[in-house]
């Protein structure tokens, strides 16, 4: 088969481009340590969140030195708890699930962005730095009130943080 030399040059460059892209992503995954949302969050009976110790009462819990877990329920058309309060300079793992339809969990303007699927638990760990307020929104269509579904993530100074503040009820 007769391939023009210029086209051969382009073929090689194209392969370099592709390999370059894959290498960058691998660099992000290994050297920077960015993990994808995966299957480790486990499954749950979405009709019985009330019977689950974590999601019957959505909340933030301290699990270690500077380590927190946030159990979040995304449902038509709210996030619970709201706001989610965590202390500055800590590592926070969100566990998010839904009792009804698919939702999105997006901390606005950040890389914390994941799908929420009924029956599955989305596990997402982030590092939070200085005190700041972030919006949270649902970015997967979930019904007629989808555009009203929002919440807040408040990173408070470490000395002002108290567990239990996060519960809105």
């Amino acid at each position: 088969m007769n391939i023009h030399n210029y086209e051969k040059i382009w073929l090689v460059l194209s392969m370099l481009l592709i390999i370059g892209f894959i290498s960058t992503v691998v660099y992000g995954a290994t050297a920077v340590g960015i993990e994808m949302v995966n299957d480790e969050g486990g499954t749950i009976d979405s009709t019985a969140l009330d019977e689950d110790d974590r999601f019957s009462e959505p909340r933030v819990e301290k699990v270690g030195e500077d380590e927190y877990e946030a159990y979040v329920v995304a449902r038509q058309f709210i996030f619970e708890p709201n706001p989610i309060e965590v202390p500055a300079n800590s590592t926070v793992t969100f566990y998010v699930t839904s009792p009804d339809v698919l939702h999105g969990f997006e901390v606005v303007g950040t890389n914390a962005n994941a799908m929420v699927v009924p029956g599955e638990i989305t596990e997402l760990t982030v590092e939070v730095n200085e005190p700041k307020e972030y919006g949270i929104l649902c970015n997967e269509y979930c019904g007629g009130g989808h555009h009203t579904m929002e919440g807040k993530l408040i990173v408070v100074p470490e000395d002002e943080f108290e567990l239990g503040d996060s519960n809105d009820e």
């Binding site: 960058t24 340590g33 303007g109």
Partner: peptide, 17 residues
Amino acid sequence: WVFMYFVEFLGNDLTVL
């Protein structure tokens, strides 16, 4: 690509770990 990955993405807040 370099700009989007290293500036927009890795420079963004709340790194997922």
